[in-house]
Amino acid sequence: MTGKGVMVYSEDKELELQLLRKGREFADKLNGPLSTVSLSREPIDADELIRYGADRVFLYKDPGFDLDIETYRAALLMAVKRASPEVILIGSTRRGRELAPRIASALGTGCMTECIELEIDERGDLLARRLVYGGSAVALERSRNRPHVATVPPRVFRRAEPSERTGEVMELGIEKPKPRTIVVERREKSRGGEALENARIIVAAGRGFRRREDLKLLEELARVLGAEIGCTRPLAADNGWLNEWIGISGHKVKPQLYIACGISGTVQHLAGIRDSQVIVSINKDESANIFQASDYGLVGDLYTILPLLTGTLRRIKGEPI
């Protein structure tokens, strides 16, 4: 190991293991070590990080209270100082996305966020593809400075395979910086959404639904289809009717059948469903943009159409209507 290597970090365990796979590949290519930082509310055991591909683990011991951005920043910058990596990959959770540009500014470098493909070229520059224009286009970008800083969303890379390997474990040796924001309350949210990302059929609701109770129409359709239920961001984030939404800032889905009900088809929503095999939309506005992005469209009131659709499918199935 001669070169300066790679550093990866995410406070999210699964994402950390995914970054370790790409990090290992880059480290081998650059002929340098792969470092990581063990720092989160529920840190991964250092030996496990090594089994999954790390050569060096920097430990930050700070159990028991909430971590603020100043702590993440100080820990990462110290680890970067000690390892001087050429490439820094950070997991693109919201915490990761607020951390990466800070690190980049502290180091005086550029930063590429939300990368969905990453590659090191013969010059050692980092090339990335990332979504732009609301998610309607893909940019190919090059980072020319060192170190390269990039963030990577979940599930872009598969997780690394564990094996019996050896590595170094080191204390980071920093003082906890004085926090500048105080967390006075933490309201845990229920997370889910894996079901959506793996679903073969999804029926999804938009603001065409007027009341929460009306989602029953969709639940009945979902039951007969064996489908998962999804929605647009306003239904989850404004109304709180469901926990997870689909789109550029939510889950990216790839079902064989996606049925959009009362959804207008903004670029932000479409960015999450473009890998669907067949898209069906039901909307009462014949000029709605969703029809441009659909295979089959039904113009009409979802309150009339959904019960009919459910009824027809039940009949085929031989169920009582």
């Binding site: 470098t109 550029g110 930063c111 590429m112 090339l127 732009v132 224009y133 309607s136 286009a137 893909v138 940019a139 190919l140 970008e141 090059r142 980072s143 020319r144 400075n145 473009r274 898209i279 014949e286 029809f291 441009q292 992005a293 659909s294 295979d295 089959y296 469209g297 039904l298 113009v299 009409g300 009339t304 159409i305 009919l308």
Partner: peptide, 25 residues
Amino acid sequence: QSIEIISVEAPQVERKRIIVKGETI
């Protein structure tokens, strides 16, 4: 600049765009 944009493309996803229409709903 530290970051260079090499290219931007809007990948095409072909959709059939069939509006299904019968005599009645």
